[in-house]
Design a protein around this nucleic acid. Sequence first.
DNA 1: ACGCGAGCCTAACCGCGGTTAGGCAAACAG
DNA 2: CTGTTTGCCTAACCGCGGTTAGGCTCGCGT
Lengths: 207, 207
Amino acid sequence: MTQEPLALSRTARTRLRREEIVTTAARTFADRGYAHVGMRDIADAVGIRGASLYHHFAAKEEILYAVCLTVTREPCEENLPLLDAAGTPAQRMAMLVRAHLRHLYRRRVEHLVGLHEMASLTPEHRAEIDGHRRYYQRRVRDVITAGARSGEFTVPDAQLAAFAVLDMLNGFSGWFRDDRGLSLDAAVEGYVELVVARTLGAGGALA
Amino acid sequence: MTQEPLALSRTARTRLRREEIVTTAARTFADRGYAHVGMRDIADAVGIRGASLYHHFAAKEEILYAVCLTVTREPCEENLPLLDAAGTPAQRMAMLVRAHLRHLYRRRVEHLVGLHEMASLTPEHRAEIDGHRRYYQRRVRDVITAGARSGEFTVPDAQLAAFAVLDMLNGFSGWFRDDRGLSLDAAVEGYVELVVARTLGAGGALA
DNA sequence: ACGCGAGCCTAACCGCGGTTAGGCAAACAG
DNA sequence: CTGTTTGCCTAACCGCGGTTAGGCTCGCGT
């Protein structure tokens, strides 16, 4: 172990640099589209030269891959545990919706990129991203199925409802802006109502 | 007027050729992504040479623009009139959902492209496409507002509900396949129930 | 019959942008 | 103090792919 007085350890600093590049690149991709952004553009935004990016990433697509990973892996790691917590399916779904929307907001830039630029990924990388997405969707469908079995949800087809709910949620980052009258908290609670109470049919009792 | 015995008139044939190019290009864009498809690829799929495409379109982006136009203009022209027809807001929304989903299915390839490749459009073209989308959304919101005023819909915030409903609907083309157990008719009617009866809260009476 | 334009061709251009090669300075290890 | 590694630099490459130039051949209108 080496000391870390004010400055961060070497590996920590390099990881921070990587994340800075990914964040900056995500911002640029979201603004102008992956195809219209050159390595030199990303480098300019970071404050280095184009070729220097290759000390952190082997290719441009790897940067996009890193962006997409954060928005498909983080929800799996942070939100899905809520589905294993205590409470009825309706309560757990309500928690998931809140966490999901807040993550969508916190990572809104990356989500926009991940939504639009999937086509620019390597087939292998896209397959991995898709795997995460399908896993997440399967877990949500299972909770809806559980809620339907217990009679708490009155939805006829759990699979159909899962698709509907997830599309509804994921669209959120496409239109929500917090500087236009509606606050994030209000929007989130409105969506909890729309998703859990209405679409899934769990009348009251949302915790 | 010239005769058109078996063969079509000149202008009709050229229009058909244009549409063939647009359809073929949409298919290719959907499969491999706009950026990974070259003019020569499109031309190969049509059966001509790359440079010959420039007799029909001034640039590659014009082809993408044509694809995007069909999926944003057609719904405005074909579906929105249903909102002006007779009936309660709930009945009219149910008709709109049916028409919307069937259009999404009929033009599913083009919709996939229009959803993913917006970033590759010229700013002016994207602005026009966005205009159509916003107009459509505004019309849907107005019906929801009307239904909420008449008490038929029990939704708290019409704007929020409009976003939710449209995201829910537009996601449809992203996952629905008619060769996997669920028929189109069943999916459409399931979505009518989910959207109008549940999410918007119009209990029964859907015509 | 004849001219014209639509449609497609071959050939080539050429610039953008991802990528590579190789060097220099500071930071860290021993 | 010295060897090595990290991070960034300058310089250049080079291939892909959108685009252009210009010519041939039909089919249609007059």
